Computed example of a mutant assay.
Amino acid sequence: MANETQRKTYRIGRAAVPAQKAAVPEQRGSADDSLPVKPKRRHRRRLMLIVIGSTIALLLGLVAAGTYLYYRSIDSNIRRTDAFGTTGQSHAEQAQQEAIRPQVEVVGAKNFLLLGSDSRDLDDPDRRGSAGAGRTDAIILLHVDANHGKAYLISLPRDLYVHIPPSPTNPRQGNRDAKINAAFAWGGVPLAVRAVEAYTSVRIDHVVLVDFAGFQQVTDALGGVDLNNDCAFTSIAEPYRHFPEGVNHLNGAAALDYVRQRQQFPDSDFTRMRHQREFLKALLDKAISTDTLRNPIKLNAFLKSVAKAITVDKEFSLADTAFAFRNLSSSDLTMLVSPIRGPAMVNKESVLMPDPTRAKALFDAVAKDTVADWIAQNPQATTTTTTGGCPGR
């Protein structure tokens, strides 16, 4: 904005320079004596316009710089973790690890791994992201296209039965088939990243570990969110909240309760995953609403709450991400689920078996940034329910 203002100031300055004309001798005593020409006054007026324009440009520049520094201060308060497991590795080890990771196929497209951690019993918040630090009740691959105009939230069911590769930080962990959420329990964020990359062949650019308990504060900072509930149900734990069918305005505690429920529904985790994605969309809607953006106090509370609720990789920048995706709204988000064949029993454990063919086609589209084309060929993939059904029906 400052550059635009400066260009306008430059044009004003040029317009202020009078065209060169032939000198005209002063005609004293003529009929024009009643309207004397005062070049000094006009010059002062032009100079004043230039000074005012330059001052406005400078002030706008200072505001932009102040906003940038503010976002940087928020960035500095976010917890960070070694999401890719490179700390302490030699150059040779890092090169070896890099060689087995998927490569960037489309410049500009970004892939975020969102991990929803249930860390209610975690005493030390600095342990977030480490092995054994809670469970991952939500695993979502967020793909943003190269134009930063569309985004896709792809849920990977926590019971998805896949091969967990060896942990980059502890090779004795992993290297066997299991539910995909076991990766986080065994090797923290680094193994979760490796497991998702191995299964999808999509390179993860950034990781955001979401503490759902922390997002209770985020929701409250926004004054609550509105969620459209298609099935009336009651939570299975105290205080046994009832969520009627239709639009529910939820504060932080109620929203957290809402996204944790699964046992009441015929399709269990699939309804919970849908509720989680819908909650994130509602949160985004509220965060980018004019009511939030034009209220400095509310915006400040929101950003500080977000900073407390997330743990990110070492290269993630909230300021840069917010600027890059500033034009995205919830209407630009499409919700998907990684294709599955259905439930099965493996070693007396209930799991969800993946559909390798359909999953490969979807994640190839993610890597090549052609998800919109894949959806056009698979319109049923955007259906938000699976077996569906409401409690008691």
Rank of each mutant, 00 (worst) to 15 (best):
D137K: 08
D137Y: 07
A138G: 13
L141F: 02
H143E: 12
D145P: 11
A146C: 11
A146D: 13
N147L: 15
H148T: 13
H148G: 05
G149S: 15
K150C: 04
A151L: 14
A151V: 06
Y152P: 08
L153V: 01
I154Y: 03
I154K: 02
L156G: 07
L156N: 04
R158L: 05
D159G: 14
D159F: 13
D159N: 12
L160T: 13
Y161E: 09
Y161L: 08
P165W: 06
P165C: 12
P165N: 12
P166E: 14
P166N: 11
S167T: 04
S167C: 13
S167L: 10
R172A: 13
Q173D: 04
N175R: 13
R176T: 01
D177F: 11
I180S: 02
N181D: 14
A182D: 08
A183N: 07
F184Q: 08
A185M: 12
G188L: 08
P190N: 02
L191M: 13
A192Y: 03
A192R: 06
A192N: 06
V193E: 04
R194K: 11
R194D: 05
A195F: 02
A195K: 02
A195R: 01
V196R: 00
E197C: 05
A198H: 13
Y199G: 00
T200A: 07
T200V: 13
S201I: 01
S201K: 15
V202R: 02
R203I: 09
I204A: 08
I204N: 04
I204Q: 09
H206Q: 14
H206D: 15
H206I: 10
V207H: 09
L209C: 04
L209G: 00
V210N: 00
D211S: 14
F212H: 14
F212N: 09
G214T: 12
Q216K: 12
Q216V: 03
Q217N: 10
Q217C: 00
Q217R: 05
T219D: 00
T219R: 00
G223A: 08
V225A: 03
D226L: 11
D226I: 13
L227Y: 06
N228L: 07
N228E: 15
D230G: 04
D230P: 09
C231R: 10
F233L: 09
